[in-house]
Each structure stands twice: as structure tokens, then as C-alpha cells.
């Protein structure tokens, strides 16, 4: 296993761009999709046990840099955890949910993540997504699933100057190039 992990690379190999904000592709991150009845105690226990944080409310993210639980839809959670812990976590969730109607899938290699840093990140995201990025509509800690340009993505603000974006691995280059253009120096709009 450890031999295999040594070869895990993110699709853009940690690409970075500094403009209006800094955009950095994150190192491979463990992600587990958990679907089922989110009100069921078994699902809650499995999610919080592996996610290490409280159950998030509608559209909320609860967690820190290492571990988080994201509310993705009325019957779907995304658990973020260190990459190497995923196989064990999937097995233990499977055991906890034995007999209940649920889906557990390791999606770590299907996705990639970007970290945005800088005061202008609401503006850069607003250039790419048809979402209301105003602080009132998207408070810090709320997950917004939408599209960036032509591809689906999810993002949430950890603070006013730090955000995380998740998209499909296959479109990592497209998303990164879009950020590079949207964050070009001198392209401030000043809306927010």
C-alpha cells in the first residue's frame, strides 16, 4: 500500500498561480461519498465517526483543514480526510452501515481540490459561477454546489480570505486555467 501511495499525484502536480488571489492545487485529498437517509442515526454515527466533526446542517461544512463533513444534497455527504486513511474508513463505515440502505464510495481519485487565498476570492468565483457570492447569500462555512464555467464544482469559504474548491479530476486543467484568467492582475471589478 505505501508503495502505491508514493505514486499518487494530483493532476496538475500542485500547480500554483498568483494574481488577484493565489490559486493552488491541493495535494491529493481523501474523499468519501456517503449517501442515505441523513436523519438516520446509523448514517449520522458513521459520518461523524469518520469525519471527526458534528453533522453539518443544510448546505453547511463542518470541519477543519484535515477532516470535514460537507452537506452536498438532502441525501448526500462528502467526507474529507487524509488520503491514506480512506481504505480503512470505507471499510469501517461499511461495517457500521451493514443492513442499512446507504452508499459508500471512495471518490478521492475522481476529484481534485484547489485552495484560493486572498481578499478578492468572492469576486474571482463570481466571474466563473452563476451563484450569488455576496456575504449575505454565501456566508463563511456554507457549501455552494454550482458550475465554474462549463463544469460542476463545489466550493466553500473557510474565511473571507480563504476558500476551497472541489471539481472533477478530469477537468482540473480547465478549472485552473479559468482561475488563472479570472484572477489576472488588473482585472479587479470591485463589486463586493
Amino acid at each position: 500500500m505505501s508503495e502505491g501511495l508514493a505514486h499518487v499525484v494530483s493532476p496538475l502536480n500542485g500547480a500554483r498561480f498568483d494574481g488577484l488571489i493565489s490559486v493552488r492545487e491541493m495535494a491529493p485529498q481523501g474523499m468519501i461519498t456517503l449517501r442515505g437517509d441523513l436523519a438516520a442515526p446509523a448514517i449520522k454515527n458513521a459520518a461523524t465517526g469518520v469525519g471527526g466533526h458534528d453533522m453539518p446542517g443544510q448546505r453547511q461544512a463542518s470541519g477543519d483543514a484535515d477532516r470535514a463533513i460537507l452537506w452536498m444534497s438532502p441525501d448526500e455527504l462528502l467526507l474529507l480526510l487524509p488520503y491514506a486513511e480512506v481504505p480503512g474508513a470505507v471499510a469501517s463505515i461499511g461495517k457500521l452501515l451493514e443492513g442499512s440502505h446507504a452508499l459508500v464510495a471512495d471518490v478521492s481519485d475522481a476529484r481534485t481540490g484547489f485552495e484560493l487565498r486572498g481578499e478578492g476570492l468572492r469576486e474571482v468565483l463570481a466571474k466563473l459561477a452563476p451563484a450569488d457570492l455576496s456575504p449575505g447569500a454565501l456566508p463563511v462555512g456554507e457549501v455552494r454546489r454550482t458550475r465554474l464555467g462549463q463544469v460542476p464544482a463545489a466550493f466553500w469559504l473557510k474565511s473571507e480570505a480563504s476558500a476551497q474548491v472541489i471539481c472533477f479530476r478530469s477537468v482540473a486543467r480547465y478549472v485552473f486555467d479559468q482561475f488563472r484568467r479570472a484572477a489576472q492582475p488588473g482585472s479587479t471589478v470591485g463589486f463586493f
Partner: peptide, 12 residues
């Protein structure tokens, strides 16, 4: 009505 978002047409 499922996630409470005001969704733009292009998101649908």
C-alpha cells in the same frame, strides 16, 4: 426546494 438555493437557469 431541495437545497434552498436560488438557482440560475444555467445551473438547471
Amino acid at each position: 426546494p431541495c437545497c434552498g438555493i436560488q438557482a440560475d437557469e444555467t445551473e438547471l
